[in-house]
């Protein structure tokens, strides 16, 4: 959504509760469990939410989006039948989750984020201080390259190791680890001459998102 206009002021709720409704908490927990047990990984989950119809995405609350995505994805991935969703109960045995039932003993495992760092398959292609361009790619599948930087030039500021590549992970095509860089852009490069001259914006860019200049 970076750079879109017209959404108005940021509205801050004072003393906001962790959840506004009990069902929000259940959706959060169910979604975490289906991820932790290897059923629907985090990248698939994100793509599921992004793939909701735009009018649904823009008008739904945060956890409503989570629910609509997870309900759709447990069916798509073969863990639950559409008829079972309609019936509101299990009608048959379906395939097991890769890591089995999620029990109380598994809680500690998800209280700390997993590691996404992987052994580098090859040396990094870019170095700190190097000027690079964000590639103008527009895949219909999942990507973490925000639209507002595509085609723009920036500077590599940090090299953050080699990480699971969301673009393939979201499609169930494996981790294909890629070097991850912090690339910083001048606001005038992104938004034109009228932009705030004191502003710099960085993204976390996987190596395939970048090209040499």
């Amino acid at each position: 959504m970076g750079g879109m206009d017209g959404f108005g002021k940021v509205e801050v709720e004072q003393n906001e509760p962790t959840f506004h409704e009990d069902w929000e908490a259940r959706v959060m927990a169910i979604t975490r469990v289906m991820g932790a047990n290897g059923g629907i990984n985090i990248d698939m989950q994100r793509f599921g939410r992004e793939s909701l119809p735009p009018e649904v995405y823009l008008t739904s609350s945060y956890y409503r989006k989570w629910f609509l995505a997870i309900e759709k994805q447990v069916v798509e991935r073969g863990f639950v039948g559409a008829d079972e969703i309609a019936a509101g109960r299990s009608l048959r045995e379906t395939k097991p989750l890769p890591r089995g039932k999620f029990t109380l003993d598994d809680i500690k495992r998800i209280a700390v984020r997993g590691s996404f760092g992987r052994e580098p398959p090859k040396p990094a292609a870019f170095e700190i201080g190097e000027r690079v361009r964000a590639r103008n790619i527009n895949p219909v599948t999942h990507t973490r390259l925000p639209r507002y930087v595509r085609g723009h030039a920036g500077i590599v500021e940090r090299i953050n190791g080699c990480h699971v590549y969301p673009d393939t992970s979201a499609q169930g095509q494996g981790e294909h680890p890629q070097w991850l860089y912090t690339v910083v852009f001048d606001a005038r490069e992104l938004w034109g001459d009228d932009a705030d001259p004191t502003l710099k914006v960085s993204i976390e860019a996987f190596e395939p998102y970048l090209e040499k200049m």
Partner: peptide
Amino acid sequence: ALETILTEKGYVEPAAL
């Protein structure tokens, strides 16, 4: 309903949620 289905299938126990 979704929680019921996932519980009946043995994917999750409500206490863990």
